[in-house]
Write a protein that binds this DNA or RNA. Structure first.
Lengths: 203, 203
DNA sequence: GTCTATAGCCAGATAGAC
DNA sequence: GTCTATCTGGCTATAGAC
């Protein structure tokens, strides 16, 4: 009744594969390392997933499925605009603490295979900007925020939230702090990023 | 007197290697592809650079040497704070148009080899935050901008400028536009990003 | 389903002719 | 300096025993 007995081999492999692929990417990942992490042998990887490519695709799909709802919190949650921004920046930091390599993995592999987008778009729950756009337009008309294109605002929100994690080593070097101090800075962003954005747009 | 006759083989190789490494990363790059691009054979790559690792390091160093002065424009240019932000966001877009894969390459390889930072720090012209920090502190004391930590402001400036390029496929999908429309949006950011930041901090 | 052993391929690196 | 040919190791994938 141990948890590891309940989870079957297929799941063990997928979890190990997530770790390795997300840290090393498709090109850098090694089937041997995944097998070692899953405490099985290489042959079993192929028994369950046929090829490295298919195992990778399972990992990628799973990663995107986890990331998409996070992004959707800005786009298709029906709370007030400022509240959404506040909740999103708070939530997102917590999400990345749990899955530190995931967003960067998704973005890098999308960069290398832009055609993945076509396939993802077919899935249900693929985020769309329409609701967010209407909300921004309305807030502008009501004089609540300065005029700004919804697309630009969305890019800004995403940038301010995703980049501090993706660019961590570079940013740590630039601001000249160690990992502990940098983590403190990231936690502060849970509230500071929303304040920054709201200050930028509110009238 | 053709340009390609003046440039020697070593430079041709480095240029080809830049293209391949910056697009595919260390793990994904192939020596054969670099040789093909440089219109020479694989043996010559080793003749000039000994190994893939050393060729990669030459490319990485060259890339960082190009990127560092760009980042320094925010940190150690002695113009006024608002003016710096404006100039930086304008310049940076132009820079990435010329070197589309470079910033992402540097960041990804730093993520995979955080120890590179130690070596880079030894170089002269490594960007430091001190001047920028003093400038932010002063602007706050003078009541020109709201209180904000210089580190957070720097992270915000970097995020808003670097991420729209690194996350292009993801952002294109989210805001549901094609490459042409997205490029237009990026060009608009030349001025919009600075406005956004200044609105966020000015009193 | 899980293992060991190995086939087969591909990439980095080298030898040696010119 | 530049080439062709080849070595060597490592990696994906499969065969086949249990």
């Amino acid at each position: 009744m141990d948890k590891s007995k309940i989870e079957n081999t297929e799941v063990e492999i997928l979890n190990a594969a997530k770790e390795v692929f997300q840290q090393k990417g498709m090109a850098g990942a090694r089937m041997q390392e995944i097998a070692d992490k899953a405490k099985i042998n290489k042959a079993l990887l192929h028994y369950y997933y046929r090829s490295k490519q298919l195992l990778f695709e399972a990992v990628f799909k799973s990663a995107f499925t986890l990331l998409a709802p996070q992004l959707n919190k800005v786009l298709n949650d029906d709370s007030d605009l400022f509240e959404k921004i506040t909740k999103f920046t708070d939530n997102y930091v917590s999400f990345v603490v749990k899955h530190p390599y995931l967003p960067n993995f998704v973005i890098q592999e999308l960069n290398k295979n832009p055609e993945f987008i076509q396939r993802l778009r077919a899935e249900k729950h693929f985020p769309t900007i329409d609701t967010f756009k209407a909300q921004v337009t309305e807030a502008i008309e009501q004089g609540k925020i300065r005029p700004i294109e919804a697309e630009q605002l969305l890019i800004n929100i995403m940038s301010l939230n995703l980049f501090p994690f993706m660019g961590e080593p570079l940013l740590m070097a630039l601001i000249n702090v160690d990992k502990t101090a940098y983590n403190k800075i990231l936690l502060d962003r849970k509230t500071q990023v929303a304040d920054f954005i709201i200050n930028a747009i509110k009238i």
